[in-house]
Nucleic acid binder design. Structure first.
Length: 351
DNA sequence: AAATCGTGGAT
DNA sequence: TATCCAAGATT
């Protein structure tokens, strides 16, 4: 874009934002901690999904100190259903570092803030520009889509190295007087006008400066390579209840998928062995009978894999030594533990 | 660089 | 039903 147009572009964009921006909870604060929480929750997550989580979370943890020393189990319960649970643990680790190393003041420069757990290039720029009015780029999917059209950039936005192209574009265009509004304006424009499909170009405040619109190519951008489809894994899941109504429950490992979340025991279906036998061996219990062999059947789709679950309710007899991270608990107790959505589905069909 | 890491809504 | 995808970060 020619330099004499950049001034009009940023003015029209920010002016549009001032009139049309959405009223969102995190837009009623300038507390860097609260901005931080919102930005982490919003990573790969829709605004409508985040809003109730954000409100509950900040009611529970009003200050950075409240979050820094919260019990991890409680923290994960607050995050339950939001997904990408490492975000919660990284956020707490980052917050704790700010409390202990920076005297509870969130750093106001990219060098320091980028070292915090869970704070990548986008989140760093978002906090710096929105909370501290620093002229820093904050390039997310919206920004890449909008600018790929405005500037007619055809690089594959699925390629990691492409982000730098858009960061440089923002550095050229950004309103240094209102950097937070400018960055949020690009994102709101992407969410409300310059949408992935059927962009509302006739309502766009910057269509005069949009190369793709003026060439009738808005719907052909951005260029994004496709991803592979999910792999399928089949499990037998056991609601294994003892004579006192307590269920076998286990905590997942602290790394990898659904880290530190609790689940009913699940055995990957194997051609060569019975899942019931594996359950008894792995958990050192004895199945004494079936209550419901077809309690529930469903599939749960993650971003990169699909779980096909066949759930059954069985009677079990406890033995002496349970493995680590395995407990027998009542349903009431289990409901206080953080569980992933597929396990909540099973919990919901038990009395 | 490419995989991993959740969930629910839209098309 | 299938696919995409939404304010990404980590490894």
């Amino acid at each position: 874009m020619k330099y004499q147009y950049t001034k009009e572009f940023r003015h029209n964009l920010v002016e549009w934002f001032n009139h049309e921006k959405r009223d969102l909870p995190w837009r009623h604060t300038s507390d860097p901690y609260k901005i931080w929480v919102s930005e982490v929750m919003l990573q790969q997550t829709r605004v409508d999904t985040v809003i109730p989580y954000y409100n509950r979370f900040l009611e529970k943890y009003p200050t950075i100190h409240d979050l820094a020393y919260a019990p991890q189990e409680e923290l994960l319960k607050m995050w339950e259903g939001l997904g990408y649970y490492s975000r919660a643990r990284n956020l707490q680790a980052g917050v704790k570092e700010v409390v202990e190393k920076y005297n509870s003041v969130v750093p106001d420069n990219r060098h320091d803030i980028s070292k915090l757990k869970g704070v990548g290039p986008y989140t760093a720029g978002a906090i710096l520009s929105i909370a501290y009015q620093k002229p820093e780029h904050a390039v997310d999917g919206n920004v890449m889509r909008v600018l790929s059209r405005v500037l007619h950039i055809e690089e594959d936005i699925a390629q990691p190295k492409t982000r730098r192209v858009f960061e440089e574009a923002v550095e050229m265009l950004i309103d240094e007087q209102h950097p937070g509004d400018f960055n949020q304006a690009l994102m709101d424009l992407g969410a409300m006008i310059c949408t992935p499909t059927s962009p509302k170009c006739l309502l766009c405040p910057v269509r005069d400066y949009c190369i793709a619109f003026n060439e009738g190519k808005a719907d052909q951008l951005p260029v994004k390579s496709k991803k592979v489809k999910t792999k399928k894994v089949q499990f037998k899941v056991f609601a294994a209840v003892d004579e006192e109504g307590r269920y076998l429950i286990e905590k997942r490992p602290s790394e990898g998928l659904l880290a530190d979340m609790w689940q009913f025991p699940m055995i990957e279906i194997n051609e060569n062995s019975l899942s019931e036998e594996t359950l008894q061996q792995n958990y050192n219990v004895e199945i004494s009978g079936y209550i419901d062999k077809e309690l529930l059947e469903f599939k749960h789709i993650f971003s990169h894999l699909t779980w096909e679950m066949e759930c059954m309710q069985v009677k079990v007899v406890q033995k002496m030594d349970l493995p680590e991270n395995v407990l027998f608990l009542t349903l009431e107790q289990i409901r206080t533990l953080p569980m992933p959505v597929p396990m909540l589905k099973i919990l919901n069909v038990l009395n």
